[in-house]
């Protein structure tokens, strides 16, 4: 029993390492090769786990090899368009200029229900609203609405665009997040000044976010209403 427990722990570490090695690409939409690797890795990992007759190495070697192949193939994929086309296929246009291309739909084995479901997931409830739709290599559908159906932007109504960097979490559970502080140019002195202005001691901070313009949000460990300071606020 303890052997199985230790093997489970080792395989857990190995699978986590493998997923991390494949990178964030793996955690989002899956490319065909990534889907195959994910299924294979999960299957191989169970073999030495349930059968102690199989050495752990026999399970670990193919997992590591497959993941390394995948990383190297994705590297080649980046370097060669032809290789990428062979490995991942190419996006297919299913609606162009508001016209559905039935031949492409048939080629993709995409039914009308599939098309409507994909459009609905993009908040489009009728194909007439669509100017352009593409089935990506991951199988997801990207939709461009007709300009008449599109939402207004600041530019459309003549508002000047506001460009601002997002706030960063600089304190979590009383602990400073140095990397985040550096990214918004916040040093210890400025942080102490912000906390003083907010009237909250550092040890009392549960979460604090700050932006490069002097604004911050502070939530206390003891609860209660959070403190909000806008950039340029003196109080």
């Amino acid at each position: 029993m303890s052997v199985i427990l230790i093997r489970a722990l080792l395989l857990y570490v190995l699978v986590i390492f493998s997923v991390r090695l494949m990178g964030k690409r793996q955690l989002g939409e899956l490319q065909p090769s990534e889907l195959v690797i994910t299924i294979l890795v999960s299957n191989i990992a169970t073999l030495p786990l349930e059968d102690t007759d199989i050495p752990l190495v026999i399970g670990a070697v193919p997992i590591l090899a497959l993941v390394c192949f995948e990383v190297l193939v994705s590297w080649l994929d980046l370097r060669s368009v032809r290789f990428r086309k062979v490995l991942s296929g190419s996006p297919k246009i299913i609606i162009s200029g508001g016209v559905i291309d039935y031949d492409v739909l048939r080629e993709l084995r995409f039914s009308v229900d599939d098309l409507m479901m994909a459009l609905r997931s993009k908040d489009v409830f009728s194909p007439e609203e669509v100017q352009f739709a593409i089935v990506e290599t991951t199988g997801s559908v990207s939709v461009m609405k007709k300009s008449a159906e599109d939402t207004l932007s600041r530019k459309d109504v003549g508002l000047s665009p506001e460009e601002s960097d997002p706030p960063q979490v600089v304190i979590t559970d009383g602990k400073l997040q140095r990397t985040a502080m550096e990214s918004i140019g916040l040093d210890d002195e400025k942080l102490a000044a912000l906390l003083k202005r907010a009237g909250v001691p550092r040890e009392e901070v549960f979460i604090m976010t700050a932006d490069p313009y002097g604004g911050c949000y502070i939530s206390r460990k003891s609860g209660g209403a959070p403190v909000l300071l806008k950039g340029g606020d003196e109080k």
């Binding site: 090899a65 390394c68 190297l72």
Partner: peptide, 11 residues
């Protein structure tokens, strides 16, 4: 990529 290549070589 380097880590993967190193692991493959090790294997």
């Amino acid at each position: 990529i380097k880590l993967s290549a190193a692991i493959l070589l090790g294997l």
